[in-house]
Design a protein around this nucleic acid. Structure first.
Lengths: 338, 338
DNA sequence: CTGTTAGCGCATTCAC
DNA sequence: GTGAATGCGCTAACAG
């Protein structure tokens, strides 16, 4: 990698290194002619400034990190897409880290990045994260940080999410209106605020409609085979739920799989609605009713806010806790009729 | 970011900076006692070496880049997952870049990274990439490079892919055995070698089985609405295809959508088989027959090979062109019966 | 085993 | 407008 550097340019042009540096950064104190000469040669030799040298000197990396629990999930893919819609314009680079829903990994990654490798991070916490010290420590170090989707109510950090409780309420109410009497809530194990918000919406809908059947909160995991076992046991019972509200797309898929195994018909025997960003949900058998989150927008806005922090701009009040609304799409999986 | 540095540690311990540096890197020429003292204080102060300084000094970044056309695609998500299964163990970081199937972006990204920001790249080329100069230039600079999935036959670069032609042959033959007489191939526009391989498999199956109906190669794009228009026009014709082999998951989804619009029944009127890594394919209406690529393994192996190159190890012959087999799963979308 | 010294490539201060 | 000198934090060559 015999990279051209400033010294070589300077020598070739009979200029000082500092002059070349300034010319390339379009400093006002360099004559137009010199700038032109410098730029021409730089272009010709394909000069690219060494990022490590300039990061070291300027104490900034032009890099941000995105830390997510998993990537095989349309929601997070779309978020990354949204983030990537702003980073190149800012001249920034994006590092990706996966926690695989493991608190220890999450903590280690944050620790690993606390050395100037990145100018800021965007994180959606893992479901095994209960201790938040790693995040407050990061915050205290004064490095920009934004939470998205899987936020933490306890923390005073800018965060971007959707109207979880409201949509959970709507989804549950939708199931009730379609005649469900015994609705199960499938949530993430752990104490994620996102799960809690969705659970709260579910519970408050049951309460508002004075449902007498006790709520049934089922905690599932990141592992499909475990979830299928759990659901299998539940739906084998004679009085199984007649409605399912899945907080996560994966859980709806697991429900479909188990209903197939047990010959339970959707929507006749069980109605299903789920948070999901899968385009193909409309092609399911039967088409899955979904709550679609504005994933791309969440990514884009989270990135915009992170850059405001990095550039030390003031945040508008609404930017400190931004809520982007989701949309409920009713499809065949919650249709009435027998 | 008042980061602790070596100098401060050295001062506190009454040691030279170099001694501290060596102790932390577990050099054999440092006494165990000193190492212990150094480590203890480093831990206590939360010392993290500045990566830019050490990258500058050692001329390596401990970072690789993954360049892909899009991320909202299960295949690429799973590839990233596979890559991430090896990078942390190597102490490496992963930068993500999206080309959005745009050659100019792809070229610019490669240009942007030719300055030591990364120690190597893994790339799946965009479908608008016809000129390969940006890749050969990269190669000539001697920086490690691995191609995966969307490879380039013209280049002598290590690449990892699946047995595209063979699986395309099998899929087409499968449709023929199920009674299709008029099979359309849905491929990516452009001149991707991956499309060509899959098309070749399709054509050779038609030839082997002496199909008289002329082959129908349809070129689709990255935009769903354009694809739907194209397919709509084709399936509106009276003699529309009775079988579809989609080279990409997205195209199968588009086919399902259009068949729904036009009230064409799958599999009775049209049978569909597709390359796809979507777990939910089994839940489609009807369940979609798929060719599943070993995406995770492709990512993992590509990363392993890239690290061999970075570490200047010799590649085994089979590693220069690695082919990981896919699997055809027959489901209802290609079932016989009326 | 430990210390001294010299850069990596760049941006920036201070001269002129 | 331009040049010379300094140092970001770290590693490595060379001494001792």
């Amino acid at each position: 990698m015999d990279q051209v550097n400033l010294k070589q340019l300077a020598k070739e042009l009979n200029l000082a290194v500092s002059t070349v540096s300034r010319a390339l950064r379009d400093s006002h104190e360099i004559s137009p002619q010199t700038k032109e000469r410098v730029r021409e040669l730089a272009m010709k030799l394909g000069f690219q400034p060494n990022p490590h040298a300039s990061s070291l000197r300027q104490n900034k990396s032009k890099t941000i990190a995105v830390i997510i629990p998993e990537i095989e999930n349309n929601f997070f893919s779309q978020v990354i897409n949204g983030i990537e819609s702003v980073t190149p314009n800012k001249g920034y680079h994006v590092l990706i880290y996966l926690t695989h829903e493991d608190y220890n990994k999450e903590r280690d990654i944050l620790q690993l990045l606390r050395n100037g490798r990145v100018d800021g991070i965007m994180i959606s916490v893992s479901n095994t994260t209960t201790n938040l010290d790693h995040i407050t420590a990061w915050q205290q170090a004064g490095i920009p940080l934004v939470l998205f989707d899987r936020t933490c109510d306890e923390l005073d950090v800018p965060n971007i999410m959707t109207n979880d409780a409201e949509m959970a309420f709507k989804a549950t109410e939708h199931l009730l209106k379609r005649g469900c009497k015994n609705i199960a809530f499938l949530g993430m194990a752990g104490n994620l605020s996102i799960s809690n918000r969705r659970k709260a919406g579910y519970l408050s809908a049951l309460e508002k409609h004075k449902v007498t059947t006790p709520p049934q909160v089922i905690e599932l995991t990141a592992k499909d085979y475990i979830n299928r076992e759990t659901l299998h046991a539940i739906f084998q019972q004679p009085q199984h739920p007649d409605g399912v509200f899945a907080a996560i797309e994966k859980f709806a898929v697991n429900t479909y799989e188990v209903c197939k195994e047990l010959d339970l018909r959707i929507p006749q025997d069980v109605k299903v609605v789920s948070f999901s960003n899968l385009q193909a949900a409309a092609l399911f058998d039967p088409a899955l009713s979904t709550i679609i989150q504005p994933a791309y927008d969440i990514g884009r806005e989270a990135a915009n806010i992170l850059f405001k922090l990095i550039e030390k701009k003031m945040l508008m009040p609404y930017e400190k806790k931004m809520i982007l609304p989701s949309q409920l799409i009713e499809r065949a999986s919650t249709a009435t009729g027998s």
